[in-house]
């Protein structure tokens, strides 16, 4: 993990405002709609493939035995569906070269 600055929806909106020329309201709306659309697709059980970026995939996990780490008591971890992200080739190669902060 690397410490440092964080890109949030607020500074993303600021940059869309500068780069694309949307007003602040429109920029905020389109960012919210974009992430909501990805969530809706995943909620329907549909993967999302964003070329140049990566794929959001769904994995179905079976029930497995687990343990409460505090009490040591055995409790089953229920079957569930989880989201995983697979970075695309282009994203990977652009990141790999990051020199690091140390």
């Amino acid at each position: 993990m690397i410490d440092g600055k964080t890109l949030t929806k607020a500074n993303m909106a600021e940059k869309l405002f500068n780069k694309v020329g949307l007003n602040k309201r429109e920029a905020k709306d389109i960012i919210d709609l974009f992430f909501e659309e990805v969530r809706l697709s995943l909620e329907r059980g549909e993967q999302v493939k964003l070329s140049g970026f990566g794929n959001f995939e769904l994995r179905d996990k079976k029930e497995r035995p687990g343990r409460n780490p505090k009490t040591g008591k055995e409790i089953p971890i229920k079957a569930r569906r989880v989201v995983t992200f697979r970075a695309g080739q282009k994203l990977r190669s652009r990141i790999k070269s990051y020199a690091g902060s140390d």
Partner: peptide, 9 residues
């Protein structure tokens, strides 16, 4: 990410 920043939504 390329600049070593996080993205938090």
């Amino acid at each position: 990410l390329e600049n070593g920043e996080r993205v938090e939504i």
